[in-house]
Design a protein around this nucleic acid. Structure first.
Length: 803
RNA sequence: GCGAGUAUGGCGGAAUUGGCAGACGCGCUAGACUUAGGAUCUAGUGUCCCAGACGUGCAGGUUCAACUCCUGUUACUCGCACCA
């Protein structure tokens, strides 16, 4: 049987020619929108990991189409960003050409795998017709005060010569190249994502994301409730701190402020030891995040001499320090230090020989701090806290907060770890930011009707040495007229991050070729939302959060129908190498899907990847197992020889057939792909046990297997003379017939199986009980013993308890 | 350190509500058919001191009955990481 190549080609052509999977907004059908993360068309081609998730979603799409749903299953390309640019630089071609080439490869691979995408909706984020709307939406952010320019210390990758978002620089190393990130001051476009922190949290209630996905989002947003407190400075002036442990306020022995924050700059004129302080600020700036977190556990810092702060509750004057464990961009960039009750403050106090005051009773604080997670909920009481002495912590927290609020110096506030989104990249290969810097008018947005702002056609697109975008070197691009006053002005030369285009691509699929709007409200209302979104776990924090933020903003300005446009989000496990390690060229364990398709066929690869293990877990590659799937398909082919001329279904197969239909429906909608395949193997084995099967029997197996193995099943179906499966209806099962009327159940004595009896569904408890007692082996084990009770679970088990 | 997840034969993994642990597949063993087999078919395949007993990371508990529920614990994987 080596004509699978011919067969697969034939049916791929058929689907293309008949536009089988293209959909329109058909009002008579129920819409269902299935989405997989569109790939980054890299130079190395499709990965077997792509095949896993695309096949899974493809199977769901194919089944649901047969069930009468109007299934939108689109595909496109997320082609802006550093990898495409680096690939282009390395191979000395223009990124546009590189992307075109890579898309062609990807698309061919997808076609040979028989994915049922609606190719009429294909686009790339790099198409001017698409990024026009990305730019347009950026202008909406700007016009609603959600985009602003700010000079901030940013993560800088010295190798990629680019600014990275906190998300891209997670762990203090560059996401792309692994180089240590350093801090650098830069003027950047920002989106006010932190304004949406609370909405992004509550919005999760309107989604059906997997729990682990929701949790990832919640952790990333990182909400903490606490008190913001104004602190007076001796001799005038004040600053604010944020704390979640206001109950320890009487234990303050010093304050620490961030060296990279704005506060120290304001205080500078009054600082006595300016040289020392400035040196420390400089030192901090050269340290990467990594240094600040891992390598530098010892608490460095200097005292800010000449300035003392006043503890508002007792008037005590305490010193102020700089310390790089306090971050400039979280909270207020300043903290109250209570060394007895915070381990970081404790370490800092030991290092700098500072006073400690215990204010919560219940532990020895001479060796380490007695922290919040240790004293909360244990009934611990306050001490050394004047009128609050003796109060339980939780109560004291409330009373102290009330007092501070009353005094007008305290506010209950929430803080979030999530920061604003740094939206500028000093890169060529991204959407140009459509803003113009006019010497007279300041930043002016481009006129919407002039969009798209195209990337210029140039030969040089490598980043400049000083970290400016390559676009800055192109006078024809930079120089322009101010849309407001008509005078000479300069364009923004930074481009958008590659997360931009992917933050709204799923909306575009609903109306992919609209040249009047990014997507029409009418079509978005028809499709309503993404019903089922599959992607990698690695995208559940960042991409999904950006996309939700983007959508919520569009909703607030009335441009999309729902505040959450994604309903279910699930994630798949990785396909590992056969050595159980992540596939990588350096380890030599990479499996190329093309090779597998060539040798075994697309159907085999698809079936194998569905069968390989729990969909949500990583699974190692096994070519032996793949061969097993090939054998299964061969067996299905051979079963055709058993088909007789009889009409209808074989009686003895009724139960298993109904059961299998039900099982496949359940499994394909619950990510149980491996057990779906297994139940089809069981069905095929049942057929194989018979001398003959009917045409209808055989066709049922073909239809049920079709979502996973669409080519061979269509071919066999056609050979029987039926109309194509992709134009047929999904079979219905009869719940009553899924239950076998005769069944073997176990008989246990004291929980141990001693016999098996055959029962009928109609049998009553008493007769089952009697028959169970009559089994020889059961008799042997209950002989001479007192029967305490007999438990009969109908259709499942009998347990006789004896003493 | 914090958060999440995982742990079942030689291997990948089943067990939807507590009800015969190991479905299904791989691998392996023996046999059949064969010039041949990465083909197909048949039988077998958790462990052991094998009429029986023991077995789902480990130690307890609840129950007639526990992979499943509860308490504690270990290892690994992933995410976050001085977030006040």
């Amino acid at each position: 049987m080596n004509d699978f190549k011919k067969i697969e080609k034939k049916w791929q052509k058929y689907w293309d020619k008949n536009k089988t999977f293209e959909v329109t907004e058909d009002k008579d059908k129920k819409p269902y929108y299935i989405l997989v993360e569109f790939p980054y068309p890299s130079g190395s081609g499709l990965h077997v990991g792509h095949v896993r998730s695309y096949t899974a979603q493809d199977a769901l799409a194919r089944m649901m189409r047969m069930q009468g749903y109007n299934v939108l299953y689109p595909m496109g390309w997320d082609a802006f960003g550093a990898p495409a640019e680096q690939y282009a630089i390395k191979n000395h071609i223009h990124p546009k050409e590189a992307v075109k080439e890579n898309i062609k490869t990807f698309k061919n691979q997808m076609k040979t795998l028989g994915f049922s995408f609606d190719w009429s909706r294909e686009y790339s984020t790099t198409d001017p017709d698409y990024y026009k709307w990305t730019q347009w939406q950026f202008l909406q952010f700007y016009k609603h005060g959600m985009a602003y320019k700010d000079t901030i210390p940013v993560n800088w990758c010295p190798k990629c010569k680019s600014v990275l978002s906190n998300e891209d620089a997670a762990g203090g190393v560059c996401e792309r190249c692994g180089t240590q990130v350093v801090q650098k001051e830069k003027s950047q476009w920002m989106l006010r994502m932190s304004d949406y922190a609370e909405d992004l949290l509550t919005g999760l209630d309107d989604t059906n994301f997997a729990d682990r996905v929701k949790l990832g989002q919640i952790n990333w947003i990182g909400k903490s409730e606490g008190v913001e407190l104004d602190v007076e400075i001796v001799g005038g002036g004040k600053f604010s701190i944020f704390t979640t442990c206001i109950e320890t306020i009487y234990g303050i022995t010093f304050f620490v402020i961030a060296p990279d924050g704005k506060l120290i700059k304001e205080l500078m004129p009054r600082v006595e030891n300016k040289d020392e302080v400035e040196a420390y600020i400089k030192e901090t700036a050269t340290k990467s995040n990594m240094d600040r977190t891992e390598l530098n556990k010892g608490k460095t810092g200097v005292e800010v001499k000449g300035i003392k702060a006043i503890n508002p509750v007792n008037g005590k004057e305490v010193p102020i320090f700089l310390g790089d464990f306090v971050l400039g961009d979280y909270g207020t960039g300043a903290v109250m230090a209570v060394p007895s009750h915070d381990q970081r403050d404790f370490e800092y106090a030991v290092e700098h020989n500072l006073e400690m005051i215990q204010v919560i009773d219940g532990a020895d604080v001479s060796k380490k701090a007695f922290e919040k997670h240790e004293y909360l909920g244990k009934g611990c009481k306050l001490m050394n806290s004047e009128e609050f002495d003796g109060l339980v912590v939780e109560e004291a927290r409330d009373k102290i907060t009330d007092k501070l609020v009353e005094m007008g110096i305290g506010r209950r506030v929430n803080n979030y770890k999530m920061r604003d989104w740094i939206f500028s990249r000093q890169r060529f290969w991204g959407e140009p930011i459509p803003m113009i810097d006019c010497p007279k008018c300041g930043w002016v947005p481009m006129d919407e009707k002039d969009l798209p702002l195209l990337l210029p056609e140039v030969a040089e697109y490598e980043p400049t040495e000083d970290g400016e975008s390559p676009l800055a070197n192109i006078p024809e691009f930079v120089n322009c007229k101010c849309p407001k006053c008509g005078g000479d002005a300069k364009r923004e030369t930074d481009t958008m991050p590659n997360w931009a285009g992917s933050s709204w691509y799923f909306l575009r699929f609903m109306d992919a070729h609209n040249d009047k709007e990014f997507a029409s409200m009418e079509k978005m209302k028809y499709w309503n939302r993404v019903d089922w979104y599959n992607g990698g776990m690695e995208h559940t924090a960042r991409h999904l959060l950006y996309a939700r933020f983007w959508v919520q903003f569009l909703y607030n300005i009335g441009l999309v129908p729902n505040k959450e446009m994604i309903w279910t989000r699930v994630s798949h496990g990785m396909v590992l190498g056969s050595d159980n390690q992540k596939m990588s060229k350096s380890k030599g364990n990479v499996i190329n899907p093309d090779d597998i398709v060539n040798e075994y066929g697309a159907d085999t690869l698809r079936v194998y990847e569905m069968f390989m293990g729990d969909y949500q877990m990583d699974a190692p590659w096994s070519t032996d197992s793949l061969r097993g799937c090939k054998r299964f398909i061969d067996k299905v082919i051979r079963l055709k020889d058993k088909v007789n001329d009889k009409e209808g279904y074989t009686d003895t197969l009724e139960a298993i057939q109904n059961k299998t239909i039900k099982k496949i429906e359940y499994d394909l909608t619950h990510m149980g792909y491996n057990t779906a395949i297994s139940s089809l193997m069981i069905l095929a084995n049942a057929y194989d046990d018979l001398e003959n099967i009917t045409k209808d029997d055989y066709r049922l197996l073909l239809i049920l297997l079709n979502p996973m193995a669409p080519h061979i099943t269509e071919e066999l179906n056609e050979e029987l003379g039926f109309k194509p499966i992709c134009e047929s209806e999904w079979p219905e099962y009869d719940e009553e017939k899924t239950v076998e009327s005769v069944k073997d159940i176990a008989v246990q004595v004291n929980g141990k199986v001693r016999a098996t009896i055959q029962i009928n569904v109609e049998d009553d408890e008493q007769s089952i009980k009697e028959r169970a007692m009559e089994c020889d082996n059961v008799k042997k084990h209950i002989e001479g013993k007192e029967i305490v009770k007999v438990i009969v679970i109908k259709g499942k088990i009998v347990n006789i308890v004896v003493k």
